[in-house]
Amino acid sequence: MKAIVHVVLKKDVLDPQGKAVEAALRTLGFGEVAEVRQGKFFEITLDGHRDDASARLDRMCEELLANPVIEDYRITIPDA
């Protein structure tokens, strides 16, 4: 089974990369861009199907994929 994990900086943490991308998009003429937040995307393939997959993915995020001090994460299991 596959899982998708998105990791983004928390709302109150300044995202200078997102700001730079936001400014570049406006410079390109995309004036409708109000804000850009840049994050990370992980596609994780798991062996077999586990009933506790969601809980295990939560632990993966807490222990390594995200830094809970500055980042939030979102787990999606598309075919669940």
């Binding site: 943490v13 300044l14 200078p16 730079a20 830094n67 001090v69 500055i70």
Partner: peptide, 17 residues
């Protein structure tokens, strides 16, 4: 040390990129 939790907080990308 911050990633290990031995010190609080986090070190993120420089504000000036």
């Amino acid at each position: 040390l911050t990633e290990t939790g031995l010190l609080p907080g986090a070190l993120v990308r420089n504000a000036g990129l």
